[in-house]
Design a protein around this nucleic acid. Structure first.
Ligand code: FES
Ligand code: FES
Lengths: 148, 148
DNA sequence: ACAATGTTGACCGGATTGGTCGAGAATAGT
DNA sequence: ACTATTCTCGACCAATCCGGTCAACATTGT
């Protein structure tokens, strides 16, 4: 399992914020309910996202959280690396692993996979994810409509 | 970190065995020394590889471990999945995650990445890894030879 | 018989995961 | 000034996983 719930929950929360972009701050409780995340755990994720510069938060009545940048300027790669730390499948893919390289010769395979993965993740923005989700919802609705 | 040391060590050990294919059984102690794996830990990995049908082991003096199939018929995917369990980057990429899908819409991205990864891993055999290692060694030797 | 070697399972300390809880700080409304 | 609302921060916790050790035992060659 490359991603922990941190990454998964974090992205869920961001998608939720992106979906309500421009409607003012969204509250922790709302996000937690809609995306099925324990509210007190969500705290930590929001804190991390805030430190990462992805969201802005405002306190007091009517407060909440909102995207710090437009959804199409936030890519999945930045988001996940901020939440999870490095996504490298192995240690040595990032640290060139000083010692003699003859010990374990599989690094090149993983380097290729890793590079490809990062390119793909960098190409997906939060806006794309929202789009996909909306498509999926529409699909569900229409298929339900025409059944029978 | 998608792979733990189990996968890394396990592949190291297999490469070592592949490199000495046809020379009779290779001992635990030798593998451990050459590939820098704690000997008593290596035990567990060899047991797992044996259960997975990748190696045969013989006891007694002159005993040791050897490949159960030719090195070009063992692919990295089988090996790693046997050692590490599923390599899925997220839970829901394998279990279709019964519930309402609107909760977290990033699965399609990871599904793509995962499929691609598995194809790549399936295309690499143990023999390829040995080849790569030999190339690398030759390269080191010649570059050292022509320096200064 | 004995030495070499593999086989198995119990055990262990430390790190990480996935949270909970509570005290406090900022802000809007009255 | 007071209160209700909401975020903020850090302490704490239980469970699991990771990497590894160790001791007891089984098998085989000489
Ligand atoms: S040490 Fe880098 S792949 Fe094994
Ligand atoms: S639950 Fe599947 S990607 Fe989040």
């Amino acid at each position: 399992m490359l991603l922990s719930t941190k990454g998964d929950y974090g992205v869920r929360a961001m998608i939720d914020l992106a979906k309500h972009e421009g409607e003012g701050p969204v509250q922790r409780a709302e996000i937690a309910r809609r995306r099925q995340i324990p509210e007190s755990y969500l705290d930590h994720l929001l804190a991390q996202l805030r430190r990462g510069g992805f969201i802005r938060s405002t306190r007091g009545p009517g407060g909440g959280h909102e995207l710090a940048r437009p959804a199409d300027q936030i890519c999945l790669l930045d988001l996940l690396e901020s939440l999870e730390g490095s996504l490298a499948p192995l240690q040595c893919v990032e640290n060139p692993a000083g010692g003699p390289e003859a010990i374990c010769g599989q690094d090149w395979v993983w380097k290729e996979i890793y590079d490809d993965m990062r390119v793909r993740l960098a190409a997906v923005s939060l806006a794309d994810l929202v789009e996909h989700e909306r498509d999926h919802e529409r699909e569900l609705v229409t298929s339900a409509h025409y059944v029978i």
